[in-house]
């Protein structure tokens, strides 16, 4: 009996040991590359090695050079403008459309919903050739408005679906009782239902906002002159030439994007998780 007790105890110890070992190892693997990037941003001189070492001269000079000697400031502003416009327009469009699909039974509703589902599967960025020809015709090469338009359009089918799914979770009795109280259609939408979908609006806004930061393919293809670049393309120019890698500048630029976006992410993370499961299970 005591023997059995012994073995149970030691197996529990082993479980604990391996659990913590795994968690620590995974933490190290996650933090290691992030710390390398973070620390490289503060190293003086044109460092070439990209590793975690602390025998360097620490400085803020990389940040000064970033804005003084490169176009980073302009890239950042370009990206912010693109991101804000994309976010505002896309969230408006998908909220209106998602609401209609959730609350109204109109002719063509079901067919167009299936249509959304199918369209959503097309890898939109892959129709690059068509975008190129359209941009030629419109004189929109190197113009950010065309890029914004494509970002907005590309996100509509998928996000309308998610939005509809979330609206579906708001009980329709609310609308009915508001209607009995004499509220018009627009008031029901704007004052009764809309406030209740705020968590999903936050997620959608963050997603739409982040797309222009991370999207590389279309931006690289459509934006031709360096002063029109977004941060993703701009930063890549720092490290794309193997002979002349500016890893310190790259790291400094990376931090200025990663920190605010991560903070936004963690602020909205609660919404994120609930939206993920609500929208996900509803399909």
């Amino acid at each position: 009996m005591s023997n059995l007790f012994q073995s149970q105890k030691s197996s529990r110890f082993l479980t604990k040991f391996f659990t913590y070992a795994f968690l620590l190892l995974l933490s190290v693997i996650i933090l290691y590359p992030l710390l390398i990037t973070a620390s490289s941003a503060f190293k003086a001189g044109n460092i070439a090695a990209f590793d975690l070492s602390f025998d360097a001269t620490w400085t803020l000079d990389n940040f000064r050079r970033l804005f003084a000697d490169t176009l980073y400031g302009e890239w950042y502003i370009n990206t912010l403008i693109i991101a804000f416009v994309t976010m505002a327009v896309q969230v408006t469009l998908i909220t209106l459309a998602g609401y209609s699909y959730s609350r109204y039974r109109f002719i063509g509703r079901k067919k167009s919903l299936v249509f959304f589902l199918l369209v959503q599967m097309i890898p939109t960025t892959a129709t690059l050739v068509a975008f190129y020809v359209m941009a030629l015709l419109l004189g929109a090469l190197d113009q950010s408005w065309f890029l914004i338009f494509l970002y907005i359009g590309g996100g509509i089918p998928m996000n309308t679906w998610l939005m509809k799914g979330y609206f579906d979770t708001i009980p329709i009795d609310l609308d009915e009782s508001a209607k009995l109280d004499g509220a018009g259609q627009f008031r029901i939408f704007a004052q009764i239902v809309l406030p209740l979908v705020r968590p999903m609006l936050a997620i959608q806004a963050l997603w739409a906002f982040m797309t222009p930061f991370g999207e590389y393919m279309l931006a690289k293809f459509l934006l031709r002159s360096p002063e029109n670049y977004t941060v993703a393309i701009g930063l890549q120019t720092f490290i794309s030439n193997p002979q002349e890698q500016k890893v310190a500048l790259f790291s400094a630029g990376a931090i200025l994007i990663a920190v605010p976006i991560s903070i936004l992410f963690f602020m909205l993370q609660k919404n994120f998780v609930s939206g993920l499961t609500a929208g996900g299970t509803k399909g």
């Binding site: 933490s27 933090l31 930063l235 991560s262």
Partner: peptide, 19 residues
């Protein structure tokens, strides 16, 4: 464990590319 999701992917990919 959320950090790889929170940090924009294009930044970490380029960092890994350097690494």
């Amino acid at each position: 464990f959320l950090l790889p999701w929170a940090v924009p992917a294009f930044i970490t990919i380029m960092s890994f590319s350097n690494m």
